[in-house]
Amino acid sequence: MSLHWFSPPVSVRTTRPGIAYQCNNVEGAAEQLLQWTKRGPKWHSAVQLCMDAMIDQVKPEVVRRAFLEAAKEEGNLVHLRPKALLLVGHEPNKEHRRLCSEAAVVELASEDH
């Protein structure tokens, strides 16, 4: 079974302090939703839409919007600031750019800054 991709990713808190998950597919959204404790109306809608998308009844972009709203409802939506991922003095190459664009786990920016 292939993944159902959407873009841009939705960044959500995880159970690990200081770590966010950048979700960019329906299956990842469903996995995250099942870990959340609050299960309000937006959560229920997002779960149903994930199931519908997995059988190609709904487009992944619809799931992305519902997942984003459910993350807000849960208090798990994370707003990330861009962060330099390359070492000083190193010229970015194609591989660096690929790794940065595919990163699924990122360090959260401090709330103080």
Rank of each mutant, 00 (worst) to 15 (best):
4 H>K: 10
4 H>F: 03
5 W>D: 08
7 S>T: 12
8 P>M: 00
9 P>I: 02
10 V>Y: 07
10 V>R: 10
10 V>C: 10
12 V>T: 06
13 R>M: 13
14 T>Q: 11
18 G>R: 08
18 G>F: 07
20 A>M: 13
20 A>I: 08
22 Q>N: 15
24 N>R: 15
27 E>P: 03
28 G>S: 09
28 G>N: 07
30 A>F: 07
31 E>Q: 04
31 E>V: 01
31 E>L: 06
35 Q>M: 08
35 Q>G: 00
36 W>K: 03
37 T>S: 11
38 K>M: 10
40 G>Y: 01
41 P>N: 08
43 W>D: 03
45 S>W: 05
46 A>L: 12
47 V>C: 09
47 V>T: 11
48 Q>G: 09
50 C>H: 06
51 M>Y: 14
53 A>L: 02
54 M>W: 01
56 D>N: 11
56 D>F: 07
56 D>E: 12
57 Q>C: 02
61 E>V: 03
63 V>L: 01
65 R>P: 01
65 R>F: 05
67 F>G: 05
69 E>P: 01
71 A>V: 04
71 A>Q: 05
71 A>S: 14
72 K>H: 08
72 K>E: 13
76 N>D: 13
77 L>W: 09
78 V>L: 04
78 V>Y: 02
80 L>A: 02
82 P>Y: 08
84 A>Q: 12
88 V>K: 15
89 G>L: 06
91 E>C: 07
93 N>T: 05
95 E>W: 05
97 R>W: 14
100 C>F: 14
103 A>H: 00
103 A>G: 05
104 A>E: 10
112 D>Y: 01
113 H>K: 07
